[in-house]
Every structure is written in structure tokens, then in C-alpha cells.
Amino acid sequence: MVSGFGFQGSRPGCLEPETQNLKPAMLQTTKLQYSYNSGSALTFPDIRCETGEHWLLLGQSGCGKTTLLHLLGGLLTAKDGSVMVGDTAINTLKTSQLDKFRGKKIGIIFQTPHFVRSLRVGENLELAQRLAGLPVDKNHIEKLLKRLGIGHKINAKTDALSQGERQRAAIARALVNKPEIILADEPTSALDDKNTDEVIRLLEETASEVNATLLVVTHDGRLKERFAKKILL
């Protein structure tokens, strides 16, 4: 291990000894480096998350949390190092392969939930299935929205949803293809305490239901106590 990744020691749960590494982890990064157009470079600590684990990635604003999440989700290309999802090194995939892979295997939730505005809530989820190359399953969509408590909003315009409802709909979209990994970027920053509790609870529950690895990136102190496994950035 290079000394540059100075946090390893304080996070034993994240980095396990190589000898225990019998099968590849669900999400694993090695020597991940990213350099901005401005020239400044970031080096990220190695991450290793097993199937079904829930992790919190804590860090102050501007320390590269979103960049890391985009690297993990294949939205950005790393300068160096690798990102393994299952046994796929996603930084070696071609752009279109990566798009398909991401659509099927990775669900991403963003700080501010956005939707395709011309489509209704249910249709947005259908689009997610279609774009991932999966068959449209209206039954599943209905159940999922009901599970998240917004079943009655299936035919609503996305603009007509409240903040809490929008974030739930975003979770539904991230989950609709039963991804193996769910990445959430500051999912609670725009929500009040009550909605934050609710959204995080739903996020954890639904992630567990599909046995997905959940990684929440945040600077929101409210979430600290809720996750046992933490990475500090």
C-alpha cells in the first residue's frame, strides 16, 4: 500500500487484508486517481464493499465526494487506478457498454432529484427499464412506488411532486432495475429531519430487499449515527 492513502488504518472495515480476498468484492477501487481539467489531481483511498453492505462516505464539501461517486458510477473516467464492480473493471468498458452496464447494475440517486419532465412518474421508471435494455414491468413499477409510499403518484407529473416525494421517486428509479449497487449523492441535503429519516430508512430497507450494496456520500452529520460502516474522505 502506498502511503498516500493515509486513511487505511482508521477504516479496518473498508480495507481488508489481501489474504481474505478470496472472491472479488461487489465494489472495489484500487489506487484511484482523478485529475481535473485545471490540473489539480485527487487521490482516493481504496474502497472495498461486499454484496449487501451499507456504507456511508463522509466528507466536507469540495473534497471530491461527488467526483468519487461519479468515478464509481462510471460517469467520469479515472486518470489512474481501477474500479471493479463485481468482476467487471468498469474503466475498461467502452462508453456505450458502460452506459448499458450502469443502467442495469448501478442505481444512482442525486442531490437534487431530476426527471424527464415530459414523462410522468411511472413513465420515468419505464424509461429507466427501457434504456437499460430490460423489459418494461409495470407491475413491478407499481409495487415499487407503493413500497416507497408514492403509489398514488404513478401518473403524476414529476414537477407536481413535493421534495420528499421527488426523492422517493428518485429512489424508485434507482431501484427499478434491481441494481447490484446503489450510489446516493447527498440524498438528504434538501430534506427536513423527518423526511431525511424517512428517506434514509426507505433507502436502507429497499436496498436490503434487493440485496444491493448501498453507498451514501454525504456531508450531512445527521446520517452519521445511522451507518455502521463509514469511510472518511
Binding site: D99, R102, H114, V116, R117, L131, A132, R173
Partner: peptide, 18 residues
């Protein structure tokens, strides 16, 4: 206005071609 939507479509698995 729709830049975000388009990016979102990529996140959901749509390719540049899409």
C-alpha cells in the same frame, strides 16, 4: 433546459447514440 434530463438518460443506461 433538458441537459440534466439527457445526462440522466445516460445514467439510466442510454448511450450517446440514444
Amino acid at each position: 433546459d433538458r441537459r440534466y434530463e439527457l445526462a440522466l438518460m445516460r445514467v439510466m443506461g442510454g448511450s450517446r447514440g440514444t
